[in-house]
Every structure is written in structure tokens, then in C-alpha cells.
């Protein structure tokens, strides 16, 4: 996006984006644990979230620097009526379910319906995440089932384990890549309309400086 002058200190300059990413899903599916694993690379049994908790993580990628602001929400159904307040303005959402609990996938589908009401398809990146791969022996949702649902709805899909650190990083990375790709598509779509100096960050994400 930005031209760097070879041999000067400007060479390392990449665009920087800040993205709000929200974790949604039933109670006890591991939302907080996923966030904790991703940010602290550790696992601990966490208390049920009341309201919301927050994490940040910065990614230094080749083409950009990304700061994730992670909003980890309470999963209990009681909080459902206030949840739109949490995901308002989000750039990405992880819909988390527990592969050993079929009910939680159903709930994830309901979350998706809510998101679809709130956002246009190109406004938000949504990933379906089947957590608790470490409980594969008690699995109630097959990989194919999750995959198939994600495919029909155009969602990213990943099976993870926050406990055994399986694909947690990859999930967030996939979301990051998708977000960046969308930025690029938006930028090129705009420049195709004759505006050649469009800044990458204008469409949604705040622009910062690295």
C-alpha cells in the first residue's frame, strides 16, 4: 500500500489496522479459554464470564500490522438480549461451539442469524470454531457437519483445542488474512473507480501508524 524508499528507514513501514473481534457462543464452550490461549499461550480453567472481558494481541505480518481488540462475551442465554451492544462495530466474529455438545452448534447457528440481521455480508468476517478437540472421544458434532454448515454460509471454519493448543493461532491468523484480503479488495475496487490514492484503512478499520 505504501511505497517504501529502498535503503532508508522507511523501508519497514507497513499499514496498521485495528480490528474489533468478538467471541460469541454458548456458555462453557471455551470462549475465554480460546482468547487466553491465543493471547497468553496458556490454559487455565476460567470462571464464567459475567458481561465481557477484553484482550489485545498485535500481529506483525509481512504486509501489515494488525492489532486485535478481542471482546470475550458471556455465553449464558440470559445475556442474549444485550449482546448486540457487544458486537456492534465488530470487524470479525468467532462463533464458538463445543464439538462434544451438539446443542452448542445449534446455538451458534442462532448467533449467526443475529449477526446476519446486524451486518451486511461484507461488513464482517465470521469464523465458525469447533472447540474442545481434546474431547474428540466424546464428539457429538462431526467435522463434516461443522464444515458443511460453514461452507453453505460462507464462514471460515476451524476445529480447535484451547486446552491442548490446537489450531488456536491458526484460527486468528485465518481471520486476519481474510480481513486483510478484504481491505485489499475494497481498495482495488475503489481505485478501479478512478480514485487511485485511496488509503487502505478508510473503510471500517481505524488507521494507525506503525
Amino acid at each position: 500500500a505504501q511505497k517504501a524508499m529502498p535503503g532508508t528507514s522507511l523501508e519497514g513501514i507497513r499499514p496498521a489496522y485495528i480490528y474489533k473481534i468478538v467471541l460469541l457462543g454458548s456458555t462453557s464452550v471455551g470462549k475465554s479459554s480460546l482468547a487466553y490461549r491465543y493471547v497468553k499461550n496458556d490454559f487455565k480453567e476460567s470462571l464464567p464470564t459475567v458481561g465481557c472481558s477484553f484482550f489485545t494481541q498485535t500481529l506483525n505480518l509481512e504486509i501489515a500490522t494488525i492489532k486485535f481488540e478481542i471482546w470475550d462475551t458471556a455465553g449464558q442465554e440470559k445475556y442474549h438480549s444485550v449482546c448486540h451492544l457487544y458486537y456492534r462495530g465488530a470487524h470479525a466474529a468467532l462463533l464458538v461451539y463445543d464439538i462434544a455438545n451438539k446443542e452448542t452448534l445449534k446455538r451458534a447457528k442462532l448467533w449467526l442469524r443475529d449477526l446476519e440481521k446486524e451486518f451486511l455480508p461484507d461488513e464482517i468476517v465470521i469464523a465458525l470454531v469447533g472447540n474442545k478437540m481434546d474431547l474428540a472421544a466424546e464428539r457429538e458434532v462431526t467435522t463434516e457437519e461443522g464444515e458443511e454448515f460453514a461452507r453453505t454460509k460462507g464462514l471460515l471454519f476451524m476445529e480447535t483445542s484451547a486446552k491442548s493448543n490446537h489450531q488456536v493461532n491458526d484460527t486468528f491468523m485465518a481471520v486476519a488474512q481474510e480481513l486483510l484480503q478484504r481491505e485489499q479488495e475494497k481498495a482495488s475496487a475503489l481505485s478501479a473507480h478512478g480514485r487511485s490514492t485511496v488509503h487502505l484503512g478508510e473503510s471500517g478499520a481505524k488507521m494507525g501508524c506503525c
Binding site: T27, L47, N101
Partner: peptide, 17 residues
């Protein structure tokens, strides 16, 4: 309740406080 994620898990974990 169906599934393992039933309410008492929260209660049981609550003692960690």
C-alpha cells in the same frame, strides 16, 4: 439439560473465587 455444558459447571467452577 441436554449436553455437557449444563449450568452447574459454572457453579462448580465458582468456588475458584
Amino acid at each position: 439439560r441436554p449436553g455437557r455444558g449444563c449450568w452447574w459447571r459454572g457453579a462448580v467452577l465458582g468456588w475458584l473465587l
